[in-house]
Protein backbone atom coordinates (compact mmCIF):
# COMPACT_ATOMS: atom_id res chain seq x y z
CA UNK A 1 0.00 0.00 0.00
CA UNK A 2 1.28 3.45 -0.75
CA UNK A 3 1.21 5.93 2.05
CA UNK A 4 -0.37 8.95 0.50
CA UNK A 5 -3.18 8.87 2.97
CA UNK A 6 -1.05 10.47 5.63
CA UNK A 7 -3.15 13.56 5.12
CA UNK A 8 -6.23 11.50 5.66
CA UNK A 9 -5.24 10.49 9.14
CA UNK A 10 -3.70 13.84 9.90
CA UNK A 11 -5.27 16.40 7.64
CA UNK A 12 -4.56 19.16 10.10
CA UNK A 13 -0.82 19.37 9.96
CA UNK A 14 -1.23 22.92 8.73
CA UNK A 15 -2.64 23.89 12.09
CA UNK A 16 0.73 23.68 13.73
CA UNK A 17 2.11 26.68 11.88
CA UNK A 18 -0.78 28.91 12.75
CA UNK A 19 1.50 31.68 13.86
CA UNK A 20 4.14 30.92 11.29
CA UNK A 21 4.31 31.99 7.70
CA UNK A 22 3.47 29.86 4.71
CA UNK A 23 6.37 31.02 2.60
CA UNK A 24 7.86 28.21 0.61
CA UNK A 25 11.35 28.06 -0.77
CA UNK A 26 11.32 27.34 -4.45
CA UNK A 27 13.55 24.49 -5.46
CA UNK A 28 14.45 23.41 -8.98
CA UNK A 29 14.78 25.35 -12.16
CA UNK A 30 12.35 27.40 -14.15
CA UNK A 31 12.01 24.47 -16.53
CA UNK A 32 10.98 22.12 -13.70
CA UNK A 33 8.40 24.66 -12.69
CA UNK A 34 6.93 24.88 -16.20
CA UNK A 35 6.72 21.11 -16.48
CA UNK A 36 5.07 20.72 -13.11
CA UNK A 37 2.68 23.57 -13.92
CA UNK A 38 1.67 21.79 -17.13
CA UNK A 39 0.97 18.56 -15.22
CA UNK A 40 -1.00 20.45 -12.58
CA UNK A 41 -3.11 22.10 -15.29
CA UNK A 42 -3.80 18.72 -16.90
CA UNK A 43 -4.87 17.10 -13.63
CA UNK A 44 -7.07 20.08 -12.72
CA UNK A 45 -8.61 20.00 -16.20
CA UNK A 46 -9.29 16.25 -15.97
CA UNK A 47 -11.03 16.51 -12.59
CA UNK A 48 -13.06 19.60 -13.50
CA UNK A 49 -13.75 18.15 -16.95
CA UNK A 50 -12.77 21.32 -18.78
CA UNK A 51 -10.17 21.72 -21.57
CA UNK A 52 -6.64 22.21 -20.20
CA UNK A 53 -6.00 25.07 -22.61
CA UNK A 54 -8.68 27.14 -20.86
CA UNK A 55 -6.51 27.16 -17.75
CA UNK A 56 -3.56 29.51 -17.72
CA UNK A 57 -0.61 29.26 -15.30
CA UNK A 58 -1.89 32.28 -13.41
CA UNK A 59 -5.49 31.04 -13.14
CA UNK A 60 -6.52 30.76 -9.52
CA UNK A 61 -8.25 27.50 -8.66
CA UNK A 62 -11.31 29.38 -7.46
CA UNK A 63 -11.56 31.29 -10.77
CA UNK A 64 -12.23 28.05 -12.62
CA UNK A 65 -15.68 26.67 -13.33
CA UNK A 66 -17.27 23.75 -11.43
CA UNK A 67 -14.88 24.00 -8.49
CA UNK A 68 -16.04 22.40 -5.23
CA UNK A 69 -14.42 21.00 -2.11
CA UNK A 70 -14.62 17.35 -3.21
CA UNK A 71 -12.96 18.12 -6.53
CA UNK A 72 -10.15 20.00 -4.82
CA UNK A 73 -9.42 16.99 -2.65
CA UNK A 74 -9.59 14.74 -5.71
CA UNK A 75 -7.05 17.02 -7.38
CA UNK A 76 -4.86 16.84 -4.27
CA UNK A 77 -5.05 13.04 -4.26
CA UNK A 78 -3.96 12.86 -7.89
CA UNK A 79 -1.14 15.37 -7.40
CA UNK A 80 0.08 13.49 -4.34
CA UNK A 81 0.20 10.22 -6.23
CA UNK A 82 1.75 11.73 -9.36
CA UNK A 83 4.52 13.54 -7.51
CA UNK A 84 4.88 11.27 -4.46
CA UNK A 85 4.35 14.14 -2.06
CA UNK A 86 1.90 15.38 0.53
CA UNK A 87 -0.05 18.56 -0.07
CA UNK A 88 -1.28 20.56 2.87
CA UNK A 89 -4.93 21.53 2.75
CA UNK A 90 -3.79 25.10 3.19
CA UNK A 91 -2.18 25.12 -0.24
CA UNK A 92 -5.33 23.82 -1.81
CA UNK A 93 -8.00 25.93 -0.21
CA UNK A 94 -6.20 29.25 -0.26
CA UNK A 95 -6.68 31.35 -3.35
CA UNK A 96 -3.66 30.11 -5.29
CA UNK A 97 -2.79 29.88 -8.97
CA UNK A 98 -1.58 26.85 -10.96
CA UNK A 99 1.92 28.27 -10.68
CA UNK A 100 1.64 28.60 -6.90
CA UNK A 101 0.60 24.96 -6.68
CA UNK A 102 3.52 23.93 -8.88
CA UNK A 103 5.93 25.80 -6.57
CA UNK A 104 4.34 24.14 -3.58
CA UNK A 105 4.88 20.74 -5.20
CA UNK A 106 8.51 21.48 -6.04
CA UNK A 107 9.13 22.62 -2.49
CA UNK A 108 7.46 19.48 -1.13
CA UNK A 109 9.67 17.31 -3.34
CA UNK A 110 12.74 18.99 -1.87
CA UNK A 111 11.67 18.08 1.66
Amino acid sequence: MDNDDAMGTDPFSGLTDLAGTTTTVVGGSRRDEDEVTATVRQIVADVLRIPADTISPDSALTDLPYVESIKLLRIAGKLERTFGIEIENEALFRKGTMQDLAREILAARER
Partner: peptide, 16 residues
Protein backbone atom coordinates in the same frame (compact mmCIF):
# COMPACT_ATOMS: atom_id res chain seq x y z
CA UNK B 1 -15.79 38.37 -9.28
CA UNK B 2 -12.49 36.61 -8.62
CA UNK B 3 -12.29 38.22 -5.17
CA UNK B 4 -15.83 37.17 -4.26
CA UNK B 5 -15.31 33.61 -5.49
CA UNK B 6 -12.06 33.33 -3.54
CA UNK B 7 -13.54 34.73 -0.31
CA UNK B 8 -16.62 32.51 -0.59
CA UNK B 9 -14.44 29.47 -1.28
CA UNK B 10 -12.59 30.05 2.01
CA UNK B 11 -15.92 29.66 3.76
CA UNK B 12 -17.11 26.72 1.63
CA UNK B 13 -13.96 24.58 1.64
CA UNK B 14 -13.17 25.59 -1.92
CA UNK B 15 -16.62 25.36 -3.47
CA UNK B 16 -17.50 27.91 -6.15
Amino acid sequence: VSGIRGAAAQQLDGTG
